[in-house]
Design a protein around this nucleic acid. Structure first.
Lengths: 244, 244
DNA sequence: AAGTGGTCTAGACCACGGC
DNA sequence: CCGTGGTCTAGACCACTTC
């Protein structure tokens, strides 16, 4: 038996992956803190009965994940917790990072088919029926955004129930339809409040608003959700990081 | 000589790196087009007289660069040219991607020391002298942004010359000071035009503007440049991609 | 000097894709 | 079916960091 991999393959999970997951878990649970040394390639190899290249593979994968840093001649160390820039987060998640609790009031909840330009953004025929959900979103008891979501009415029938509209659309899509959200392309510009939005957000007319139009894609590259958001500029700034 | 790596190390460039660079060059020069198959691991190994693992290393590195896609059972293929999202670009570069030529007019060019809050963002003492450069930026013969840059007057003395102010600050910093720009943190919100900006941009007062405040960092993590930009919302949208 | 990651060998079996 | 990438072995020498 010149091939030891066969034995390790019993669970069909690669050996390097098991080592990787094990270390990742030890970091996430706090058993290992930022700056702590992780077992060396050689230590991992002998501990798990694998070759150096395999242990190495695990550490390289962890490095690519950003969980550890490798320093030649020194060792592999737990990386400082990374700040997530440009991360796509739901409204609820966004506020949670600032220690605020989110509330949300449904303004509109119906099926429409008179917005072909939005259907097109979701790669649907212009006649497609869309589920439209418009919500007034508040943090710290102050309204600060009006968000309008559009999604295929045929594909996501269960999401039409307004009773659950408060639950995060993201998590519901993932749970009820097995759709994993991957990324969003966003167009950002500025506008001013019209009469209706001004009233909803309790600001004077012609106040500046940050307008964000998102097309949200699944891991398969399929457009899933279109969101038009209008944010009070005095209560909300978008923070991003861009790289050269 | 059980170790072949010694011979390959003559140039001190790793073998896998040489293979990687060679393929990268063939893609960049257009010798290989998107979708074309790249040599397989085995082919590269025998062509360059290296082991499979080494050829493999080269292909994996190319995949991480985004230059190729690897499909198990099929092969390694040149990836479609990737659109660069969230890429930090100078004004000139941004317009170039849209096929427009940029023009720029210097409005202010002086040394100031009465903006401690900006000095603080550049990690300078509040008494630091700052070089302030305010420019009206136009594309397609229409003004559409007012950008104000601040940088340390002491560290970047040669950049004070307004005669060269039109040249990209980015490239001048890289050439004259050996500073490589790495990333920018940006705060984005909306505001409305005041009297002066409205006149400069040839828009009515109270028109919406996209406001972007950038702090630009070098590869060493040092804040180098602070830029406040006001963009006509009707001529400019920011496009970003965010990931879950 | 001892230990670490970086590179490399010369093979191997497997799962998968396309013909 | 054959070729592909995915995983893996049991070693090796080198450059580097730390002590």
């Amino acid at each position: 038996m010149p091939q030891a991999s066969r034995a390790a393959q019993a669970s069909s999970i690669p050996a390097y992956r098991k080592i990787q997951d094990l270390i990742a878990k030890r970091i996430e649970t706090g058993e290992l803190h930022a700056g702590d040394a992780v077992h060396s390639e050689r230590a991992l190899a002998s501990m798990h009965g694998v070759s150096l290249m395999t242990a190495r593979h695990a550490l390289i994968a962890l490095e690519r994940e950003g969980l550890v840093e490798r320093r030649r001649g020194a060792g592999t160390f737990v990386a400082p917790p990374k700040i997530h820039f440009n991360k796509l987060m739901s409204f609820t998640e966004q506020l949670a990072t600032r220690g605020l609790s989110a509330t949300s009031k449904v303004l509109t909840c119906k099926t429409v088919n008179d917005v072909p330009e939005i259907a097109a953004r979701l790669a649907l025929p212009s006649t497609a029926r869309l589920f439209k959900l418009e919500r007034l979103r508040s943090g710290a008891n102050e309204p600060f955004a009006v968000e309008t979501c559009y999604l295929s009415a045929d594909e996501f029938q269960s999401l039409k129930q307004p009773s659950h509209a408060l639950g995060s659309l993201f998590t519901r899509m993932e749970k009820e339809y097995g759709i994993e959200i991957a990324y969003a392309d966003e167009d950002i510009d500025a506008t001013v409040a019209g009469a209706r939005v001004a009233r909803l957000l309790a600001i004077p007319r012609s106040h500046p608003l940050l307008r964000i139009r998102q097309t949200i894609y699944s891991t398969k590259g399929k457009p899933i959700l279109y969101v038009l958001g209008l944010y009070r500029a005095d209560r909300h700034t978008l923070r991003i990081r861009r790289f050269r």
